[in-house]
Design a binder for these strands. Structure first.
Lengths: 349, 349
DNA sequence: TCCAGACCTGTTAGCGTTAACATAGCGACA
DNA sequence: TGTCGCTATGTTAACGCTAACAGGTCTGGA
């Protein structure tokens, strides 16, 4: 019936002092044991660990970080989590950071510059070991903060522009051009574009710019466009496809700004017995895994999401381990085109 | 050509002292201005804000939190981000916390108890204002930590079991029973179950238990089962459906443990001209928004994800504002059944 | 026998901020 | 005119931990 005589009343958060008292050594020694730093005899180590476990002691990183002025956090600032793109980037980041002391902390901006600024400020106030932030476009204030933070900064996803420090991504202009080229090569002539109403999604904008630019070189232009916002992307893809095809029935290609609406479009075409890719070709952007299960494989372009996450995290990890590495790395990955079943492979005539 | 004379050399992180020197007041006054706390004259306030902005000062929350022993973080511990379920829970949490000082910090466990334990330890070491954690099943050590943390704990998603402190969720047993009942009522007799190979997904397990239990009451049992792990859920849904139907061709209902594989199954049936819901009925679980775009609406059950997030965050916010509220709230939400187009509505004969 | 050096443990002084209290200035009122 | 009571500011002492240094003990080689 005897309980372990754990002091029952105080209910105040435990500190190193409590552990040190129970184990009969100094706080410093307890700290050493708990961090595996410095020499401690095996007997002492054991005593301390037992005491800590018995008390249920959890170290206070707030105090530890302040004292050591090292914070094992990496701020990750992204526009959205509901996109499936960013969870994949997170996967890449975690893969690398799991092998280090570092830990990602996520902030979401909802594509709003002022939110980004606020989130960044908030994050920096925790004095993280590094920042991974989506995009190259930031408010002046945000750029100033990034520049002055004195920690590694990696801007991800995009390489069309100037980075504050390091950058990892793909060229979205190039991705747009590449897709346009493939479409032109396949012989399509009357091309429609379907995208999101997102003036602040700079990467989508750049893809579109690259796309129209390459079409122009081939003497073509986008014949019709349609935009949406909100709602189920798959359902919207259907609706938009219906709308654009009823408005401009002789389109022979539809380029979607993301795979989800592209998938919706594909389902619409199949439902309506439209010959894909004969009568109409389709392509999306991103290569999301879920597409695998669709009746036909949508042509798409891989944005190298996991690799981007990995590379970005690697830069932070390396610099964190090796502070003198001056950096300014710029890693440009090459998006690969997947023709799927919805884009003819016919080469230039 | 004159630059603002920002001291150029030191490049050491700025502190309150720097701002206080530039603005000519004490550190305490600067602190008061920056936190909007206590009386400060308008002139002084202005001076301080100008100095802070000019220097690009960002407060150090590490030090602030240590001194005030208040940390405005809420630890959110979930099994996965790639599920679409949890991003929705996050949405609910953010909605509520955005109106407070509190900020969510996410940790991901990948359904591994030992990861959960580690993540929890890590999180608690930041002394957050509260913990929102998925599920009621935790290791002994994790339960001990939660019990001893002395902060509000909300276990979410599930209410079939004992909570450490507060809990918000649905009864997955009940959800399973409810679905079984609807299937039985519609007159289906030979029922197949398709799920994930996830012994540690307790909620899926409980749904299955409730499901078989309700079938048993109607004198039925699950006629065949099929499990998967990894890969594109949509594609796997197809494969599994093909497999189970070729093994047991006379099944007249397929119950999927999540909507994604259910959608794959639906696409398979449509491709193979199987009459849904006449020949075979289908149902999933979760009510994910993306289903809206499918050719036919999959029957499903809403898990109240956003509401769960909101309610959990509200509990933390309330208790954080009002520490004496003793708590132990238990909020059970009612999952609603959506018949969609794949489950006959015929009532009991 | 003595000392270098490895090993183990303790002491002291912050880290940058905020809580709590102290003080200065100033007008108002009996 | 003295004192109360307000506002505006400053001073001091933590918060819980770790870096840096200071011993003290023990070993082995000269």
């Amino acid at each position: 019936m005897t309980q372990t005589p754990i002091r029952p009343i105080p209910k105040r958060p435990l500190t190193l002092r409590d552990v040190s008292e129970v184990s009969g050594v100094s706080e410093m020694t307890v700290s050493r044991v708990l961090r595996n730093r410095g020499d401690v005899s095996e007997t002492t180590r054991e005593k301390v660990l037992v005491a800590a476990r018995e008390l249920g002691y959890v170290p206070n990183k707030i105090a530890g970080s302040l004292a050591s002025s090292r914070v094992n956090l990496v701020a990750v600032i992204i526009p959205s989590l509901s996109n499936m793109v960013f969870p994949e980037v997170m996967t890449g980041i975690s893969e690398i950071l799991d092998d280090t002391e570092l830990q990602p902390v996520v902030g979401v901006t909802h594509y709003k510059p002022e939110r980004e600024e606020a989130v960044l400020y908030e994050m920096l106030s925790w004095r993280p070991s590094g920042v991974i932030i989506a995009g190259l476009e930031h408010t002046e204030a945000a750029k100033a903060m990034l520049g002055a933070a004195g920690i590694p900064i990696v801007e991800i996803m995009d390489t069309d522009g100037d980075a504050v420090d390091a950058a990892v991504g793909i060229s979205h202009r190039r991705a747009g051009r590449k897709m346009a080229q493939a479409i032109v090569d396949a012989g399509y002539k009357k091309i429609g574009f379907l995208g999101t109403k997102m003036p602040l999604d700079h990467r989508a904008r750049k893809r579109f710019e690259g796309f129209t630019e390459a079409l122009a070189k081939a003497g073509l232009e986008v014949a019709d466009q349609e935009f949406y916002s909100g709602g189920s992307a798959l359902a919207k893809g259907r609706e938009m496809t219906e709308t654009i095809l009823s408005r401009t029935p002789d389109l022979d290609f539809l380029y979607y700004s993301n795979d989800m609406i592209g998938a919706g479009g594909l389902l619409y075409c199949l439902d309506n017995n439209i010959d894909v890719p004969g009568q109409i070709g389709l392509a999306g952007f991103n290569g999301i895994e879920f597409l695998d299960g669709l009746p036909r494989q949508l042509a798409t372009m891989d944005a190298c999401r996991v690799e981007i996450g990995r590379a970005a995290a690697q830069i932070i990890a390396d610099r964190s381990a090796n502070p003198e590495t001056a950096g300014k790395e710029l890693i440009t990955l090459e998006p690969s085109l997947d023709f799927g079943d919805t884009l003819k492979r016919i080469k230039k005539i």
